[in-house]
């Protein structure tokens, strides 16, 4: 087991990095998608609605497999020989696509729950539309979205474990290797659970602090 401590530490780093990269990219994608979904251009709004609906209706595992094996086929065709896609990259792409779809819906719901009166008030104060977005809508939207975002980040941390299925050496994969080589699956998978539980608990704590920091008194 001793040799596996180092491996678990490396796996932990990979898991955290994967979650942070795809979470950040995914949130950026989600913000853009939410803005597009709320826009007056019907085609854009409908297209984004299609994207979020499709992604949320299909298992994450299928999306991961499609991007990993699909990517491998595409790149192999490009180079004319068999090239396997980097599992980390495939993980970032697929988790970003998934996270973007879910956060887009969260942001959209949050924007829609801002009272219309506030937007009208901002307009009547003579704020530019972009000022209204930046100063009135965005800050409130983020605060309203915070609890749902917390849940989504926690889901993301857990979903990173699926990338081990396409060979990424994250916490889950280290556990699987250890389970096989030392014939102690329970020990290794329990250790992996403990690490994941620590990560999701940490995410929970951070989001609780954020929520307290940005809470509106009396709400």
């Amino acid at each position: 087991m001793d040799g596996f401590v180092v491996q678990f530490v490396n796996g932990l780093k990979t898991t955290v990095l994967l979650a942070l990269v795809s979470g950040s990219l995914g949130m950026a994608l989600g913000l853009l998608a939410a803005a597009g979904r709320l826009s007056r251009w019907r085609a854009v709004s409908a297209g984004i609605g299609f994207y979020t609906t499709i992604i949320r209706g299909v298992p994450e595992l299928i999306i991961i497999l499609l991007i990993y094996f699909g990517g491998t086929v595409a790149i192999s065709a490009f180079f004319g020989r068999y090239v396997e896609v980097n599992a980390f990259l495939a993980g970032v792409v697929s988790l970003t696509v998934v996270f973007g779809a879910y956060t887009a819906e969260i942001f959209r719901g949050a924007v829609l729950s801002i009272p219309a009166g506030q937007i009208e008030a901002a307009r009547s104060l003579g704020l530019h539309p972009w000022q209204t977005w930046l100063l009135v809508i965005l800050p409130q939207m983020l605060r309203i979205a915070l609890p749902a975002l917390a849940n989504q980040w926690i889901s993301l941390v857990k979903e990173t474990s699926l990338i081990s299925i396409v060979g990424l050496t994250d916490i889950m994969r280290v556990a699987a290797i250890g389970a096989g080589s030392l014939r102690a699956p329970l020990t290794f998978y329990l250790a992996a659970s403990a690490l994941y539980l620590a990560l999701t608990s940490l995410a929970l704590v951070i989001f609780n602090l954020l929520e307290r920091r940005f809470a509106v008194p009396g709400r």
């Binding site: 926690i154 857990k158 979903e159 474990s161 699926l162 081990s164 299925i165 889950m172 556990a175 699987a176 389970a179 699956p185 329970l186 998978y189 329990l190 992996a192 659970s193 994941y196 539980l197 999701t200 608990s201 929970l204």
Partner: peptide, 15 residues
């Protein structure tokens, strides 16, 4: 709710 379903499944199936 704090651990991946995949780990839970492997604990039950392999563990």
């Amino acid at each position: 709710r704090g651990t991946p379903l995949l780990v839970q499944l492997f604990i039950i199936y392999y563990g």
